[in-house]
Design a binder for these strands. Structure first.
Lengths: 253, 253
DNA sequence: GCAGCTGTTTGATCTGTGTCAATGCGAATT
DNA sequence: AATTCGCATTGACACAGATCAAACAGCTGC
């Protein structure tokens, strides 16, 4: 869709010309959610110059694969991703869903190799931030350094939340937590808190939540029967936010 | 045990005198596992001066509590910790076990507040590294900055591994993975890969692995029947390392 | 319009792990 | 040596969610 103008066949890199460069961070309306958060105007312009390029990823294509060399982290400009890990024996699990303003690729820093796959769930665009440049810049700009540390730490805290979910919650609680989390993140991006389109399949939701797709489907149906949500395929309307929240705090034992 | 010499009643802080200061990192035999990894001698001495103090934590005491202000991260000098998260409804989960050379507290960076509890499972000692000083120093020392980023990233990768375990593995696979992981970490610290003492209870293992303590106990017994390990309360001997590993790759479906 | 595909829903049954309960063991205290 | 207390083990049974299976919906391409 309006994509055919880009045709460097390998990887759809959009080299930053003077005009696109200008647009990198300083013109970006995700500034407040993304890496530049808290930076002053001149600092943002420095960051602009570090952002190497933008890259378009079509639906179902990988931004990176597990095993590839790590060189950059990515800020999602638009679109929607999942990350997943593959075990030797073939089992795999979705470790997260990422949306605009969020950062992808930090798993690769530790071993200089990506440890998971990042796959676009819809046509997407990311800003490529070469990691060595980010490190250099964050040695110069204290605010950037601090904010990047917060971003990494937030990922750790998020992961702990998922561990909690997988370790202690029952199927319907997991799905309720998942929906509320999506709602909250869409809201932060200016979309409706109550109505949205799921970009992922039941199977992918199940993988993320440690459930089988049938269980996810049944939980959706049950929520609908109870008037908590309306589901039609991937179209979700949250009818009773508080009711969903209650599911989480209501302790069975 | 030989602990009564320390008696500043609040929090057992050991102020760094000239002699103890010298010992902070440059004299520490965990250098290679810990933050100073890769630093030159003079750089290590700079790091020494940033390490504020050491602190002793007795068994069952908290290094920090969820909700407390975040000011420092901690490097474990000796001992053994668990971290756990508490949900409003009272459910809680162990999110990790940490041993000498590992870093605690990075969850607190994002919100300037600790998000979990860190509890000593045996009498322990940590180095207190005030975070603002670490940030300042890592703006000056590129190697330190890079290594700190790796440490944070490693925590993310570790968490993904736990998510994998919780999301896709069966009870016995989880326990096998847990034992192999402990074995590997003890080995890296110069202890026996095959024989060790568990510092945590069955309940804590279960919480970490998303299982009930009875299930953990049964899995231990089963491993013993199969000659994979010998268990006697908290004393573990791994008799068949390869056999445990096989449990992980053997895919049921 | 129809065929074929992918993803979803729903039902029937099976099973791994949770739950409840009793017993056992070891370390600390007296 | 006896008592207590916190953990650990083991058994019997229940149940949430997995598995297997069939039907269905929506989309793409012909």
């Amino acid at each position: 869709m309006a994509d055919s103008e880009v045709h460097k066949p390998e990887k759809h890199i959009i080299p930053l010309t003077l005009t696109t460069l200008k647009a990198a961070c300083s013109q970006c309306n995700l500034r407040e959610l993304c890496l530049p958060y808290g930076l002053s105007e001149p600092e943002i312009e420095q960051l602009d110059s570090a952002v190497g390029a933008r890259r378009r990823i079509k639906r179902q294509q990988n931004l990176y694969h597990a095993g590839e060399d790590f060189e950059a982290i990515y800020a999602i400009r638009s679109g929607f991703f999942k990350t997943d890990v593959l075990l030797e024996d073939g089992r795999n699990q979705v470790t997260g869903f990422q949306m605009a303003g969020e950062i992808l690729g930090m798993d690769g820093i530790s071993g200089e190799t990506h440890t998971c796959n990042a796959v676009a769930l819809e046509d997407s665009e990311v800003c490529v931030i070469p990691f060595s440049q980010l490190e250099q810049l964050s040695r110069e700009i204290e605010t950037l350094q601090h904010h990047f540390h917060k971003v990494m730490s937030r990922e750790i805290v998020r992961d702990h939340g998922v561990m909690m979910l997988l370790g202690t919650m029952r199927a319907e609680e997991r799905l309720a937590a998942f929906l509320l989390n999506l709602s909250q993140r869409f809201t932060a991006r200016g979309y409706s808190p109550a109505e949205f389109h799921l970009r992922m399949t039941r199977d992918e939701i199940g993988s993320y939540l440690g459930l089988k797709l049938e269980t996810v489907s049944r939980a959706f149906s049950h929520f609908q029967e109870d008037g908590l949500i309306s589901v039609q395929q991937k179209h979700i309307v949250i009818l009773n936010h508080a009711g969903l929240k209650q599911l989480l705090n209501h302790q069975p034992n």
